[in-house]
Design a protein around this nucleic acid. Structure first.
Length: 545
DNA sequence: TTTAGGG
DNA sequence: CCCTAAA
């Protein structure tokens, strides 16, 4: 509460009303932050209750853990609730992929889950007793003493009846509470706070973002968003839709799910049986004491990435500049001003040669304004980008008008009212956020390759990732290349009996690598495919050999 | 427009 | 993931 001196006596309320606007601002900011954290705490408390229920029900289930009637959806929902994952807990039943694989391990899963729940419950209780109480208390005081209206959209989240714990308030205590959380739990906090999922692995970054409760840079859209996820909601059912960036990708992509279900059983069967064939390798490459198949399920249910996992399946990658760029927005920009049409060539030269993208421009010829924002960039294919790059000119009159605010509103539209002066501004797009591939996605990719053939990336994109903003055909190609590399490395390891020191341990499930090799065999290449007719248009089927 | 391959 | 030559 720096800069704000709230008196603890009962005169505090009067003092507040005399504070300067600046102080009120900081109070307001503080208040918002606390409310956001409260939202998380609400969720957490709910989860604790839920998990205790799960636990008691699992005690029964444990005795009949191998009972065939334990359905996969039950297991999924239990699993989802206990791990605080960014996974599919909201829609477990629509994901029928690898269901065979799943059924076999329900028993073991139940045992593991039970112990996990025990651990999780005690962690949460501890968190609740320390951090929660202090933050609730702080909220009471900030609300009651300052008498500032709550943010309307947040209101349903803050249940005053829940706010009943009276412990000395201390913000820093709250932050240190965040420090204690795992990355996964921080993801949950992030999701609750901003209404967005994130895959960021930088703990400090997450803590900073959450504690500041700043929504200025909310381009963190997790891969999982595309998997038909319902909008994140608070425990009270209130949907967090105040973030403008929600508009980026909130249309339902449920259409994709049926495609996954169409993954033919033969394929799944092979995936399953091939698992055992290369067990020795995975005995050392999968997390300790976790059978590979179990591990796959873990990945499937948590939506975790399969690449760059080190020991114990945790990612070791250190934060990159991308996270920083995400916070700071555009990485850099250049501009060029000219006085008349004669410099048009120079402008175009500038536009075409600087290795940046234009984000705002005015076409002089037809005076058509085209405005591109960071969000549009996610949607736009490179073709549109390039079109814009060709004529990136807009009025400098508008610029001089907005001179001071240029940085504050870099995307503001301008009008062409001075035809004799032009400004060209090129700004590099921020890099895409790193989005690790989930096993689910890899399976979709494999299905696509199986269906369309190796190298038909555009087709595969249309077939397997039709609505995914984040996986372009080039991304698919890149991922496939990595899978092939992993597959080759895997073969070498198997042959030599021990892995090359330089070769990183690939945590990619062996079943997937086996499938990659199968697809690599020439029968899955386009030249060996023959086109067939189908309602859905261009469908390639395999030659029979 | 799409693919392949280097960075 | 980005960038680009080449098809």
């Amino acid at each position: 509460m720096d800069g704000v001196h709230v008196q603890e006596e009962n005169t505090g309320l009067n003092k507040i009303s005399t504070l300067s606007p600046h102080n009120l601002d900081s109070i307001e900011a503080e208040r918002k932050r606390i409310i956001a954290q409260l939202a998380f705490l609400d969720t957490l408390l709910l989860k604790i209750k839920k998990e205790e229920e799960e636990r008691t029900s699992l005690e029964v289930a444990d005795h009949v853990s191998s009972h065939p009637k334990t359905t996969r959806s039950q297991m999924l929902s239990r699993h989802g609730s206990l791990t605080l994952t960014n996974g599919w807990d909201s829609k477990p039943d629509t994901n029928n992929i690898s269901s065979d694989l799943f059924e076999g391990y329900c028993g073991r899963q139940a045992t593991v889950m039970k112990s996990n729940i025990d651990i999780r419950c005690s962690e949460l209780r501890e968190f609740e007793s320390t951090t929660c109480a202090s933050m609730y208390d702080l909220l009471i005081r900030s609300n009651e003493k300052m008498q500032i209206e709550r943010h309307p959209q947040m209101q349903p989240v803050v249940d005053r009846t829940e706010v009943s714990r009276g412990i000395e308030a201390n913000i820093s205590k709250g932050i240190s509470g965040l420090e204690k959380l795992s990355i996964r739990e921080l993801h949950e906090v992030y999701r609750t706070t901003f209404g967005l999922r994130t895959s960021a692995k930088d703990k400090q970054w997450l803590i900073r973002r959450i504690s500041l409760c700043v929504g200025s840079s909310c381009r963190v859209i997790s891969t999982e968003n595309e998997i038909g996820e319902t909008p994140p909601s608070s425990p009270t059912g209130q949907v967090y839709d105040e973030m403008p960036c929600h508009q980026l990708d909130n249309r339902s992509t449920d259409a994709m799910i049926p495609r996954l279900q169409s993954l033919d059983s033969k394929f799944i069967g092979r995936l399953q049986s091939s698992t055992e064939a290369i067990e020795p390798y995975f005995a050392c490459s999968t997390p300790n004491s976790m059978p590979e198949d179990h591990w796959i399920i873990e990945q499937l249910t948590t939506g975790a990435e399969i690449q760059d996992c080190g020991e114990h399946g945790k990612r070791k990658r250190k934060p990159t500049r991308r996270y920083i760029e995400e916070v700071t927005g555009w990485s850099d920009s250049r501009e060029l001003v000219c006085k008349d049409d004669s410099m048009k060539d120079e402008i175009e030269n500038f536009v075409n040669n600087s290795k940046m993208h234009c984000i705002q421009c005015k076409c002089v010829g037809n005076s058509k304004t085209k405005l591109m924002t960071g969000h549009e960039r996610q949607h736009n294919s490179s073709k549109e980008t390039r079109k814009i790059l060709d004529t990136a000119i807009y009025s400098s009159a508008a610029r001089s008008h907005n001179e001071g605010e240029m940085n504050a509103h870099p995307f503001q539209s301008t009008t062409l009212n001075d035809r004799n002066a032009f400004l060209v501004e090129r700004t590099r797009f921020p890099k895409k956020h790193h989005r690790p591939w989930s096993v689910r996605e890899v399976l979709k990719l494999l299905e696509g390759v199986h269906h369309c053939g190796v190298g038909k990336w555009a087709d595969i994109k249309r077939y397997s990732f039709p609505d995914s903003v984040f996986r372009s055909s080039t991304d698919l190609k890149d991922k496939w290349r990595n899978l092939v590399r992993a597959s080759n490395a895997h073969l070498r390891i198997a042959r030599q009996g021990e892995r090359h020191p330089k070769t990183s341990v690939s945590p990619v499930p062996g079943a997937i690598l086996t499938k990659v090799r199968e697809l690599l065999s020439k029968q899955f290449f386009p030249e060996n495919m023959v086109s067939g007719k189908n309602n859905s248009g261009r469908i390639l089927t395999r030659h029979r050999s």
